[in-house]
């Protein structure tokens, strides 16, 4: 018999399974060679079993809900992926054309109301000031002068400190500064 001494190896059988196309030589051989037919059947059973196991596993991980969520995700990303939003071209006389005017009028009204509110708030502080203000506390100007003077005194003292710290401060400079300083002798002397 032809092909009596020939038997396909596993690779050939697997190729036959994977290609899903007719292999005339192999088909003829398998038609009469029971051992090879059994080998192919066993291989097919293994492959189908693995396929089923892997597919079941994947299908449980990707159930209907997950697949639906996946489709939604794709649709959302497709919406974002396509650049540019297509805006409708305004048609004369269409109701859409009046929409911006209404929005502008509303904005103007809001600004006017807000302005009136701010004006009223600016008028309020004199009436809603603290009780100290109504008891004749120093005016805003007096307080400012005081603050400036305190600042000047602090600056004078700082100048003196700096002059003392300076390594080459002349005695004459210190004396000049001393002239501005009240002395104990001036206060004590009249008592004698």
């Amino acid at each position: 018999m032809i092909f009596a001494e020939w038997h396909p190896d596993d690779e050939r059988l697997l190729g036959h399974y994977a290609d899903r196309t007719a292999d005339q030589t192999l088909d003829q051989h398998l038609a009469w060679c029971r051992p090879c037919h059994r080998r192919l059947s066993a291989m097919t059973r293994d492959l189908e079993g693995w396929h089923l196991a892997a597919a079941e596993h994947a299908d449980e991980a990707f159930d209907h809900q997950r697949l639906a969520a996946q489709r939604r995700g794709i649709q959302q990303r497709l919406g974002a992926a396509v650049p540019g939003r297509v805006l409708p071209f305004p048609v004369p006389g269409s109701p859409e054309r009046h929409a911006p005017l209404a929005r502008v009028a509303a904005a103007v009204l809001l600004v006017a109301l807000a302005g009136a509110g701010v004006f009223r708030v600016l008028q309020m502080p004199e009436r809603v000031s603290s009780p100290a203000a109504s008891r004749g506390a120093p005016s805003r100007t007096t307080a400012a002068v005081r603050l400036v003077r305190e600042g000047a005194d602090a600056a004078d003292l700082e100048d003196i400190d700096l002059a003392l710290l300076r390594p080459r401060t002349a005695v004459a400079e210190l004396r000049a500064l001393d002239e501005f300083t009240p002395h104990v002798r001036d206060i004590v002397a009249p008592r004698r």
Partner: peptide, 22 residues
């Protein structure tokens, strides 16, 4: 479904496979 199966076997991680399919 087929794409998800392949991606899962490829990546061994359902979340990653999901992203890859998308």
């Amino acid at each position: 479904r087929r794409a998800s199966r392949i991606a899962l076997m490829y990546l061994r991680d359902a979340a990653e496979a999901d992203e890859a399919v998308q």
